[in-house]
Simulated scan of single mutants.
Amino acid sequence: MRTKNILLVSLLAVLGLVFQSCDDKNDEKNIQFADLPSVSKTLVNTHFADKKVASVMKDNEFMDKSYTVFFTDGTKVEFEKNGEWDSLESPEGVPSSIIPSKIRAYVTENYPDEKVITIERDQSDKEIEVELSNRFDLIFDATTHELKKMD
């Protein structure tokens, strides 16, 4: 019985160390803009040239990483590990040049007085979710850019 208790305590101690080391890898840290993937830097320089970068974060998640660029005006762009954008939020409106043309046309035609303030890719559901300035959510198919539903 005593041997089983010692083994159990040892196992728990080892598991605790393993989980602690995993926690150490799940951290966010400030990085320099120059340290972003080149795809991310190109998107920022092309579509947000008039905005000032406040900070850049790298999030090291277990077996994955992502990046977030924060601008001084409250705009935020999140990038996947490959540098492609995952979501964009801007209180002033997401630059129309980033919004897929079919989605941009739908919003312009049906909500001419509204701005897209958030656009997010959902890779698992193959959707693009758009939030308008009137707080309506529109969900589009990520491949065809056809409207799937409104929330």
Score class of each variant (00 low, 15 high):
residue 47 H to L: 02
residue 47 H to C: 01
residue 48 F to D: 07
residue 49 A to S: 15
residue 49 A to P: 08
residue 52 K to Y: 05
residue 52 K to P: 00
residue 53 V to I: 15
residue 54 A to C: 00
residue 55 S to H: 10
residue 55 S to F: 00
residue 55 S to L: 05
residue 56 V to R: 01
residue 56 V to K: 06
residue 57 M to R: 05
residue 58 K to W: 03
residue 59 D to T: 15
residue 60 N to W: 06
residue 61 E to I: 02
residue 61 E to T: 12
residue 62 F to K: 08
residue 63 M to V: 10
residue 63 M to W: 12
residue 64 D to T: 14
residue 64 D to V: 06
residue 65 K to C: 07
residue 66 S to W: 05
residue 67 Y to C: 06
residue 67 Y to V: 00
residue 69 V to Q: 08
residue 69 V to C: 02
residue 70 F to Q: 12
residue 71 F to N: 14
residue 71 F to D: 14
residue 72 T to R: 03
residue 72 T to M: 04
residue 72 T to K: 11
residue 74 G to R: 11
residue 74 G to C: 13
residue 75 T to Q: 05
residue 75 T to K: 00
residue 75 T to D: 05
residue 76 K to L: 08
residue 76 K to G: 02
residue 79 F to I: 06
residue 79 F to A: 09
residue 80 E to A: 13
residue 81 K to F: 02
residue 81 K to P: 01
residue 81 K to D: 15
residue 81 K to N: 13
residue 82 N to R: 11
residue 83 G to F: 01
residue 83 G to T: 07
residue 84 E to A: 11
residue 84 E to H: 05
residue 84 E to V: 01
residue 85 W to N: 09
residue 86 D to T: 04
residue 88 L to Q: 01
residue 88 L to N: 03
residue 89 E to F: 06
residue 89 E to Q: 03
residue 90 S to G: 03
residue 90 S to Q: 10
residue 91 P to A: 07
residue 91 P to L: 04
residue 92 E to Y: 06
residue 92 E to C: 01
residue 92 E to L: 13
residue 93 G to V: 07
residue 93 G to Q: 05
residue 94 V to R: 02
residue 95 P to I: 03
residue 95 P to Y: 06
residue 97 S to N: 10
residue 97 S to I: 03
residue 98 I to M: 14
residue 99 I to Q: 08
residue 99 I to H: 01
residue 100 P to K: 12
residue 100 P to C: 12
residue 101 S to C: 02
residue 101 S to V: 13
residue 101 S to M: 04
residue 102 K to T: 15
residue 102 K to A: 15
residue 102 K to E: 14
residue 102 K to L: 11
residue 104 R to C: 07
residue 105 A to I: 08
residue 105 A to K: 15
residue 105 A to H: 11
residue 106 Y to G: 07
residue 106 Y to A: 08
residue 106 Y to W: 08
residue 106 Y to S: 06
residue 107 V to M: 10
residue 108 T to M: 03
residue 109 E to C: 01
